[in-house]
Design a protein around this nucleic acid. Sequence first.
RNA 1: CGGGGUGUAGCGCAGUCUGGUAGCGCACCUGGUUUGGGACCAGGGUGUCGGAGGUUCGAAUCCUCUCACCCCGACCA
Length: 576
Amino acid sequence: MRYSKAFVPTLKEVPADAKVDSHVFMIRGGYIRQVAAGVYNFLPLGWRVIQRIETIVREEMDRAGAQEILMPAAIPAELWQETGRWQKYGPELLRFKDRHGADYCFGPTHEEVVVDLVRRELKSYRELPTNLYQIQGKFRDERRPRAGLMRGREFIMKDAYSFDVDAESAAKSYDSMYAAYKRIFARCGLDFRPVEADTGSIGGAKSHEFQVLAESGEDNIVACDTCEYAANVEQAAIRAASEPGIQGGGELSKVSTPGKKTIADVAAFMKIAPSSLIKSLVYMADDKAIMVLLRGDRSLNEIALKKLTGATELFPAREGQLQKATGGPVGFVGPVGVDMPVYADMELKGASGAVVGANSMDTHLSGVDLARDVKVTEYVSLRQAEPGEPCARCEGHYVSYKGIEVGHVFSLGTVYSQPMNCSFLDENGKSQIAVMGCYGIGITRIAAAAIEQNHDKGGIIWPMSIAPYEVTVLPLQTNDEEVVRAANELYESLLDQGVAVLLDDRDERPGAKFKDADLIGVPLRIAIGKRSLGEGTLELKWRRESESSNIPAQGAAQAIAKLVADEKARLRGAGA
RNA sequence: CGGGGUGUAGCGCAGUCUGGUAGCGCACCUGGUUUGGGACCAGGGUGUCGGAGGUUCGAAUCCUCUCACCCCGACCA
């Protein structure tokens, strides 16, 4: 591409709306433009990146034996009603009516559609296993879209669905996708980690997320420093404590704690550690109040609570609801004498000598013995794993990371195939339900995650495999015939070699060209100027390095093409 | 959904408190000089002041309603 003809509107100034690096650089570099909250146009550079990511995904999915299809974005409500998700999915599902008044939704995921497709055709076990995938624009009406492509409402996703005869075969399909995902993310040049995860509203038995490690990530991950175990904190296993998390003993007595509403305030006031307090949380589970008890220094794992209660809607009680349920004010909530289910974290089993709220203004209770003073409904593991604590699987300890979820693989079992009756006849002529898996990749999110991991103050530093252009050629003096001729020749030769090359033939000063090249982030830059051309050399610089080197002008195209190919091969090798 | 904030030129912003007929930087257009890290000089204004209603002789500015976007939290494949 000749830059003079390209639609690449770069910006010197940082747009006011963008806070995250990947968002800032995608706008400044002329990759995307916003249309509405969480909805973007992809400009030529942005679209080239997306297409290159899609190509890698297609190659690896095809290699793993999956077949590409395309399902509709507009889905009739009946399919979603069949699985009950029309009711369950909530306001994230964008719903609308056609001219006849029939209900539709814009597909945020396609289990219903693919199962409907397969169940109509599937007859025999001989047709399995099969794996169908698509790359498609999805829409999820996020409450709060943010950070550009990291969390948009409309985004591009690759979703795949496997169908197997039994659980054993389904496990093989799962493993094959897991392996394909590792190759895909490695080829995209990402530093990532597969972690055990919650299955969320998709449902099913086991799942892994593929997390790109980045400070700006929204997900919290813990990984063991010794074994291979890594998990989302929503899911992370916690090693059973060998003794109660709070031990003190003593008599139950009232303590005056005027104005001390938080764990930190009470601990400081009473001169004890926050870990000697019990945190009492009141949640509304489908309009029923429940209480959760945790050690004062721990955080609730809401996913675990949701699983425990089976509630569709679960949120912290508002002030009025809380007062009604406990009879006391916010800040002094406690479990002694309350009339509602009380779930205590496993760590509190046998706890004594603890401090809790007294359900009356400016008062706490000390010397609480859970077994003696509180009617605990059940002891369950309800807290989040924390960095530094012992690994549940080995003798190591947890380390915490921030991650961007770019892929997720689910072992679904029959949660969709059963209610939708997706069946086949086995060897004995007996009807069986297909065992499923589903596998997602956020194509547009990969682009954002790659930038989060690969940038500096000046702009993006693309991995070779997904860069919009692999090489950029900069003629530094556009009024110098020799320079222009050499640049044009190199440009044509690189095109002949199959290299994706951007020729900056604009009548701009060298400084402007360097700045734009850095911003756009093309991995390899060839500067052609009077200075070096006189000595028969060109200046080659990797975007990721600070120093340039000179290469002979003679045969430069072949040498550059080889560097590009070697770099892509290196990334490919990383996933093997 | 709760809390906070912002809408004025393509982009970044000032002007709003205290009402008086819209401005700065960058970008852009014309001419000239420049050319190895976002050049300089001269000239040019490109605007339903987010929208609707109201108060007023007069509204970017005051009042009411409304829309959009951003941030924090909650929520979430």
